[in-house]
């Protein structure tokens, strides 16, 4: 379903490599992406060690985060993954998908054909609900079930569920939570859908388009079933 003001705050497509790329290679070969992504930052992993002497952290460079001039389009090339994401406003599937394939093609040209262990598609949606109508059950169908403690709603919550859709050959991590709203006089609900495939990944590059289209259809179905008609009125 097309919405006039989609509540998507971030959309992500990520492919995970079966073999790592070393950081120096990423830095050397990513220069050609500069035309579309002039901004560059390093991505770090921080590994913490806890002992009686205290907490020690070590940061390790794991890749580059490239972004467009307006900062809305992001490309992350890490040792073990390629990630294309778009921040709000969501440009629509056709544009987002086309951008992914453009970057995937250039990545293949620069880094060679690779095999993958996982493909993930994640859409983070935030529903901004005016205060006074904050019973989440009016807006979403994914929330914790609690015994009757006498509360009128479940208050704040964060829940996650990971399940397999065997017929689709996909896994799903579905999260919902209340979050502090960036909009005054609102409370916000997040529906975070991560659809992923870890088996039957395309061997041929021209089959990725069909695979991603399929994942997107499943993601849409999950989203539509996770929200109510009342929620649709917020962003239609």
């Amino acid at each position: 379903m097309d919405y006039s003001r989609p509540p998507i705050t971030e959309s992500v497509i990520e492919l995970r490599f079966s073999e790592e790329i070393d950081f120096e290679t990423i830095v050397k070969r990513s220069i050609k992406f500069k035309r579309n992504y002039p901004n560059e930052l390093k991505n770090f992993d921080v590994v913490g060690e806890f002992s009686e002497k205290g907490v020690f952290g070590k940061s390790v460079e794991v890749g580059l985060r490239l972004s467009s001039k307006d900062e809305l389009e992001v490309l992350s090339i890490n040792k073990n993954s390629l990630m294309v994401s778009h921040l709000a406003p969501y440009p629509g599937w056709n544009k987002f998908s086309a951008r992914f394939h453009r970057d995937f093609d250039l990545f293949t040209e620069l880094f060679g054909r690779r095999s993958f262990t996982r493909a993930g598609m994640r859409y983070i949606n935030r529903l901004d609900v005016p205060l006074g109508a904050s019973d989440e059950r009016k807006f979403i169908n994914v929330y914790p079930h609690l015994p009757d403690f006498g509360a009128s709603n479940t208050g704040t919550f964060a829940m996650t569920s990971t399940f397999e859709l065997a017929e689709q050959g996909l896994g799903v991590t579905l999260q919902s939570a209340t979050v502090e709203s960036p909009v005054p006089r609102c409370t916000s609900l997040v529906i975070d859908i991560d659809v992923f495939a870890a088996t039957d990944l395309p061997m041929r590059y021209d089959m990725w388009e069909g695979k991603l289209d399929h994942m997107r259809n499943v993601k849409n179905e999950i989203f539509e079933r996770s929200i109510t008609a009342e929620a649709r009125r917020l962003f239609s």
């Binding site: 705050t9 992500v12 913490g48 993930g120 964060a158 397999e164 992923f196």
Partner: peptide, 30 residues
Amino acid sequence: QAGAQQGTGGPASRSLTDIFEAIRTSQRVT
């Protein structure tokens, strides 16, 4: 199940992700 242990990344939504990732993977935080 392979792939479920670390979710798809998202650069601008770290806070919620971190909560869940920290729960799932315990100590490692990006």
